[in-house]
Structure formats: C-alpha cells, structure tokens
Amino acid sequence: MRKKFYWIALAAAVLLGAAVSPFASEWLDGLERVAKDKGFLARGEGEPLLAAPIPDYAFPGIAKAGWATAAAGAVGTLLTFALALALASALRRRRGK
C-alpha cells in the first residue's frame, strides 16, 4: 500500500485548517448575505438547541481570535479524519463478498 500520499494529503488538510483558516474572509457567506439583504438574517440568531463545544470555530479559552480559530481548525480537521476513517472502515464491503 502506498500510504505516503494519504499522510501528505492529511498534513496539507491540517495545514489549511490550522494555518490558513485564521486568514479566511469574515464577510457574510452567500446565504447570510441573501438573508441580510432580504431581511431574515435575525431569524437564525436565536439560542442554539444544543451548545456546541467549539462555537463558531473559536476554541474556547484561547484569547487571541486567530489562535482560537487555528486550534479549532486543527482539532476539527483531525476529528473529521478520524471519524471518516472509522465510518468508511465500518461500512466498506467485506472481503470475499
């Protein structure tokens, strides 16, 4: 198995999630822009049903916004990798079938 590709791809993803994410645009996204222009943005700003552990991609307890985003990105990217690996391993076709 040629695993090198996957490790490089994962490292690139973590780098994007942790090192590039603090520099992402903070402008409203497409749907938020439409919601603001058409007057229904406030409808989405109620209390969340369940409090998210890392709300708005800011890791709690980190004062500097950029570092909080970077930590959230690193944790989220690695968490997604781990859960996707577990899901795909559980779902894949069994050998011999």
Partner: peptide, 26 residues
C-alpha cells in the same frame, strides 16, 4: 477507505476558508 478519510478532512478544512467574491460577500 483512506481516500474517504483524507477527503473528509480536506473538505472540512477547506470549508473554513472563506474567500471574498464581491463587496461584503464571501
């Protein structure tokens, strides 16, 4: 299986990276 895992990680990370498309919209 490994492709699904790294693809999910890449998509999660890339979804954090808003790029500006027009005045005030990303």
């Amino acid at each position: 299986v490994p492709l699904m895992a790294v693809l999910a990680a890449f998509i999660f990370a890339a979804q954090m990276l808003n790029f500006p498309v027009a005045g005030g919209t990303s």
